[in-house]
Simulated scan of single mutants.
Amino acid sequence: MNHRDGTLTLAPGSKAAGASLYWQQWSPDDDPKAIIVLVHGYAEHSGRYQYFAKHCVARGYAVFALDHWGHGKSDGTPGFVPDFSVFRDGVDQLIAQAKQDFPDLPVMLVGHSMGGLISASYLLAGQDKIAACVLSGPAIKAAEEPSGVLKAISGFLSRFFPKLGVLALDSNGVSRDPKVVADYLADPLVYNGKMGARLAAEMLGNMTSVQENAGQISLPMLLLHGGKDSLAGVEGSEFLDQHISSSEKQLKIYPELFHEIFNEPEKDLVLNDMTDWLDQQLATRGA
């Protein structure tokens, strides 16, 4: 397996233009058959996906992943984002990098948690660049739907106190594997502080946008979700399954799994389900 890393600079026009984003690529020794662009979740970073990358590379895929603005080794303020579009800008430039390296290969988008929301939001305008998409525990609906009052307060705080910490995540909801939780808490590149008001409001706004425009998404879609996910409501995956217009779509709920299904004890089963489905999409394209 080959590995390389580098930095991307957000282009002029981005709300965080000039910011440096760290990215990584894992690829097989032989020519890969397709590209997986991985979009990680809130507070974490691309380095947590080495097991994911090893599996996908063994199946013949090249994997590209970045650290979002404000995450991991990238520029930015943890728990904050000036505008949700900054996350989409980073994904777009990573896809451009992947296509530069492998111009003839199809791109498969895989988004986890907030990365699932980023991916779904990206598809509303950019699905022509993507051959198929997998969403893992996407944050499309909150585990507990916020009230109208809370949304109004969130909007006020976002405008006037954008970096004020308003939401803490329960790390015990990440995985049933105690080692995964311990490693998560000990990882210096994982942010364990509160989510700021601006990012919280931006997430809520983009959840609403994806829900209202889900019918515009028409590419092949695989939705994977842990049935006992306490951090991102399984209702979000069910909603997408019911409302996207894709003729090729599949929803798979793992009844006992927590939020990070790629880090659960059953991770090999989940990863095989994902790459088997991606292989099917490639076979259909080649038919």
Rank of each mutant, 00 (worst) to 15 (best):
V134Y: 05
M221L: 10
V39Y: 01
A120W: 12
A214L: 01
M114E: 08
L123G: 01
V39W: 01
H3E: 07
K179W: 07
A287D: 09
F258L: 07
C133Y: 06
N192I: 10
S158E: 03
K151S: 11
L219S: 03
Q25M: 14
F52Q: 15
A98L: 12
L105W: 01
I140N: 01
H45L: 06
P12Y: 09
D30I: 15
A143K: 11
L278R: 10
Q50T: 12
G13A: 03
P255I: 04
M274A: 05
N192K: 15
G13M: 06
S246I: 01
N2R: 13
P188N: 14
K15D: 14
G286F: 15
R285T: 12
K73V: 06
L251F: 07
I36R: 04
F161E: 14
L21M: 08
L157I: 04
G226N: 03
W23I: 08
G233P: 06
I118L: 02
G60K: 12
A232G: 11
D170Y: 03
A139L: 15
Q216M: 09
T275L: 08
D75K: 06
R198V: 00
Q281G: 01
F64S: 04
V270C: 01
L157S: 11
H259W: 07
A200I: 14
H40F: 00
K179I: 12
D67L: 10
I253T: 13
P265S: 02
L164Y: 06
L94Y: 10
D92G: 05
Y254G: 06
K194F: 01
S230Q: 10
A132P: 00
S27Q: 07
P106M: 07
F64E: 07
L66T: 01
L240N: 04
F64I: 08
K33W: 05
L38V: 05
H71T: 13
S85M: 15
Y61M: 05
S74W: 11
L38K: 04
T275I: 05
Q216G: 08
F84Y: 05
A19N: 00
H55G: 01
G60Y: 04
M221K: 13
L8F: 04
D29S: 10
A201N: 14
F52E: 09
V81L: 08
P106K: 05
P220S: 05
I95S: 11
M203W: 02
M274S: 00
Y51D: 15
S27C: 04
F52Y: 09
D276T: 13
